[in-house]
Design a protein around this nucleic acid. Structure first.
Length: 276
DNA sequence: TTTTAGACCTGTTTGC
DNA sequence: TGCAAACAGGTCTAAA
């Protein structure tokens, strides 16, 4: 599922292909994805001025001061193809934008979880609630992150998935980051000292950066040439339950933490049971 | 104010 | 082999 690296890869690609392109046609096949078709249609004849990422959100800034805020959630995928290659509506295709160069931006999402909402630029942060979103591991201040950790009663795994504390990390990378930092996912966040907090950020930056270089973990295709991420080959614990730990050869365990499948090595990631 | 649980979804996996 | 139930997971909302 798209987390920070996958969204970053998509954004970099779309930025090259969309900026200065004008939307000449809009088709919505499943209204809940855009929530309000009439509003979504306001994008007609608007030009893409910029494409950015904030956490796992995609931001498209358009002329006439519109901002399209998108989130791919679990399975959302964007494809950019020549119009002649997408004459038929695809299964699970929920909207498409026809561009002035006869390319089509298609949105597919078989779980229908993704959302693409249009706001006026001066109010989009407030109305989309993006103002609540924390900074991502590349931008967040270590001291701010540490102070936030000291204020919560939940375990570190849940903290890493809380987008209001730190953004961009999803379940896959949370598992990998905690393994890299040798921290048990059920360690209470308040038990971590400043050095351990810094280590989480350092490992997060390293892992996310490497994944971006490798094109992410989600298999995504954005244009006719296609692009496939390969970070899935670098995963050390996620999805590896009952397999041997690459460090100590003990079995990787799987446990539900906060409703999410969590993978860890209890030998390499010992539980911290009291404050340092 | 913080935390938790349920809802939203459907393809895939598992169990009978 | 075929069917049904469980599972996967990011975010939002309501309830505790």
């Amino acid at each position: 599922m798209p987390e920070l690296p996958e969204v970053e890869v998509i954004i970099r690609h779309l930025h090259k292909k969309l900026v200065n392109r004008t939307i000449k046609g809009i088709k919505v096949f499943y209204e809940p994805i855009v929530q309000n078709i009439a509003r979504f249609n306001q994008m007609l004849n608007q030009t893409f001025l910029d494409v950015q990422r904030k956490g796992k959100y995609l931001l498209f800034f358009l002329s006439d001061d519109w901002a399209l805020v998108g989130h791919l959630r679990m399975e959302g995928k964007l494809y950019l193809k020549p119009q002649k290659d997408c004459l038929k509506t695809g299964k699970h295709e929920y909207f498409r934008l026809l561009l002035d160069n006869d390319m089509v931006l298609q949105y597919y999402d078989f779980r229908k979880f993704g959302r693409f909402l249009l706001f006026k630029k001066d109010r989009y942060l407030e109305e989309s609630k993006l103002e609540r979103l924390a900074l991502d591991p590349f931008l967040i201040n270590a001291k701010t992150f540490y102070e936030r950790l000291q204020k919560t009663r939940v375990v570190i795994k849940k903290v890493l998935l809380n987008q209001q504390i730190i953004s961009g990390i999803g379940n896959i990378y949370a598992n990998e980051i905690l393994f890299a930092a040798r921290l048990h996912p059920e360690t209470k966040a308040t038990y971590l000292n400043f050095a351990q907090t810094q280590l989480i950020l350092t490992k997060a930056q390293f892992i996310l950066k490497e994944s971006i270089v490798l094109g992410g973990t989600t298999i995504s295709t954005f244009d006719a040439l296609g692009q496939t991420g390969s970070f899935q080959n670098k995963l050390l614990v996620h999805g590896k339950d009952k397999q041997n730990c690459v460090v100590c050869q003990n079995k990787i365990e799987k446990r539900k933490i906060g409703g999410r499948g969590s993978y860890f090595c209890s030998h390499c990631q010992p539980m911290i049971t009291k404050k340092d």
